[in-house]
Write a protein that binds this DNA or RNA. Structure first.
Length: 275
DNA sequence: GCGATCCTGGCC
DNA sequence: GGCCAGGATCGC
């Protein structure tokens, strides 16, 4: 469900938990798909103080004072919710509850259980298999135009849609913002990387950054069940040019939106505009 | 590089 | 009942 702008919005909405001490962590019986044992997460984080919330791509890192972190991915349907007090609601989709010393609580809910929970004990995440597979974040200053081109060129056989979704090349885009980036860069999602010139790849990088920043500015895209950590919806949906507009005009009226399936997922684009 | 697969729920 | 969904991994 959530892509970079949604995860970033969740992160900033949860700044209230920075500085709080964790007093309890509970997991559901039917845990999400997790690599690290709940026991290890418990041992690492219980009674420690959450120093900082960080984001890398679509991952959230809950970092304690020793720079050990719980690494969370929300998958397709994951939600986080912070509450001043524990309402003890009986919802079988809740898979983790983090209780703080002051009685407030952070709930992780994930109906489809595609989310992941893991750990890292190094500030750079080098001991975490999820994080080491990740390319540089789209919004990271270390991702120069040259580096982006260099990383794209390692995958000449991919079409541009698959390129944008590939978290190992550069991290943060999902299906919505991939479609929106390609529209903004006027690039055909079916075009192969090998047939795309350097300056057009730079257009794609620039477009992706603009679209992601716009998404953050508008609090993310609430299409169905996305909320930030305090239960607020985002309004980015009102600014999407092509996503979920099959058969309609693009938002700016410059083209008609078509839906195709690539790599088993919907791609929305305007063929007359994107070449 | 591609398709199948992990899950649950909503909608037609 | 069938199709669709803000994701990513794994095996061919």
């Amino acid at each position: 469900m959530p892509e970079l702008p949604e995860v970033e919005t969740i992160r900033s909405s949860l700044r209230v938990i920075e500085g709080k001490r964790i007093s309890s962590i509970q997991f559901s019986k039917l845990a999400p798909i997790e690599t690290t044992q709940p026991q290890a997460i418990l041992r690492t984080l219980k009674n420690s103080i959450l120093k900082k919330l960080e984001r890398r791509g679509k991952y959230l890192l809950f970092k304690n004072q020793e720079d050990h972190s719980l690494v969370l991915h929300l998958g397709m349907s994951g939600q986080l919710r912070y509450q001043k007090e524990d309402s003890q609601e009986n919802d079988h989709h809740i898979h983790m509850r983090i209780g703080f010393e002051d009685g407030s609580i952070l709930i992780f809910r994930d109906p489809r259980r595609f989310g992941t929970l893991s750990l890292t004990k190094e500030p750079n995440g080098k001991d975490n298999l999820f994080l080491t597979r990740l390319g540089p974040d789209y919004l990271s200053p270390e991702l120069s135009e040259e580096l982006f081109i260099q990383r794209c060129r390692k995958h000449p056989g991919l079409n541009l849609k698959a390129l944008t979704l590939h978290q190992g090349i550069s991290a943060g885009l999902g299906n919505i913002y991939a479609c929106e980036s390609l529209y903004r860069a006027k690039l055909d999602p079916r075009k192969k990387v090998a047939k795309t010139k350097d300056h057009r790849l730079i257009d794609l990088l620039t477009a992706a950054r603009e679209v992601l920043l716009l998404g953050i500015e508008h609090g993310g895209s609430s299409l169905r069940d996305y909320f930030d950590g305090l239960g607020n919806r985002g309004v980015m949906k009102n600014f999407l040019q092509v996503y979920d507009r099959e058969g309609e005009l693009t938002l700016d009226g410059k083209g008609k939106v078509k839906r195709i399936v690539q790599q088993g997922r919907s791609t929305f684009f305007a063929p007359e505009v994107q070449k």
